[in-house]
C-alpha cells in the first residue's frame, strides 16, 4: 500500500518517464526511417546494376550473332569491368562465391569467339549464348540473395546469426 510520501515521489518522476518514452520513441522511428531509406537506395542501385547486366547480355548476344564488331567488343569488356567494380562497392556482404560468379560471367562472354580474327556468327540457340544467359542468371540470383539476406531476414534470425 502506498503512503502519501511515496505517491509524491512517484509523481515527481512522471515527467522524466514521459520524456524518456518520447525520446526512445523518436529514436526508434528515426532508425526505422533511416533503414527504409537505405533499403530503397540499395534497391535502386541493385535495379540499376541489373539493368547494366541485362544490357551487357543484349550486347553480348548481338556481338556473337553478328559480324565482328571491335568497338562493341570493347564496350562489352568495359561494361563487365564496371559491373565488377560496382558490385564490390554495393554495400552488401556478398558470399565468397560471388567473385567466382563474376569470373564465370566474363568468361561466358569473352573466352570463346571474342576478339578473334576467326569470329563466327553464331545462332541464337548456340551453347555459348545459352551459357551467357545461365551465367547472368546465377549472378543476378546471388545479388538478390545478398539483398534478401540484408533486409528480409526476421529480426530473431538476425540475432541468432550474431551469436
Amino acid at each position: 500500500m502506498s503512503t502519501p510520501d511515496s505517491t509524491t515521489n512517484l509523481s515527481a518522476y512522471a515527467p522524466i518517464v514521459t520524456w524518456l518514452i518520447v525520446i526512445i520513441g523518436w529514436l526508434v522511428v528515426n532508425n526505422q526511417n533511416n533503414n527504409r531509406e537505405s533499403r530503397k537506395e540499395l534497391r535502386t542501385r541493385i535495379d540499376c546494376l541489373r539493368n547494366q547486366i541485362e544490357g551487357v547480355e543484349a550486347q553480348a548476344i548481338k556481338y556473337h550473332t553478328s559480324v565482328h564488331d571491335e568497338n562493341l567488343g570493347l564496350k562489352i569488356k568495359l561494361s563487365i569491368e564496371r559491373i565488377a567494380n560496382d558490385v564490390n562497392i554495393l554495400g552488401i556482404s556478398l558470399s565468397n562465391n560471388f567473385s567466382f560468379l563474376v569470373f564465370q560471367f566474363r568468361k561466358s562472354i569473352t573466352l570463346n569467339n571474342f576478339d578473334s580474327h576467326e569470329h563466327t556468327i553464331l545462332n541464337a540457340d548456340n551453347e555459348l549464348i545459352q551459357n551467357i544467359a545461365s551465367a547472368i542468371q546465377s549472378l543476378t540470383i546471388e545479388i538478390e540473395k545478398a539483398y534478401g539476406n540484408k533486409y528480409h531476414v526476421p529480426w530473431y534470425k538476425k540475432l541468432r546469426n550474431k551469436d
Binding site: G73, L74, K77, L78, I80, T110, L111, D115, S116
Partner: peptide
C-alpha cells in the same frame, strides 16, 4: 586496363 577479355587472360 580498359577491360580484360577472358581469351587474353587464358
Amino acid at each position: 586496363v580498359r577491360g580484360y577479355g577472358s581469351s587474353f587472360l587464358e
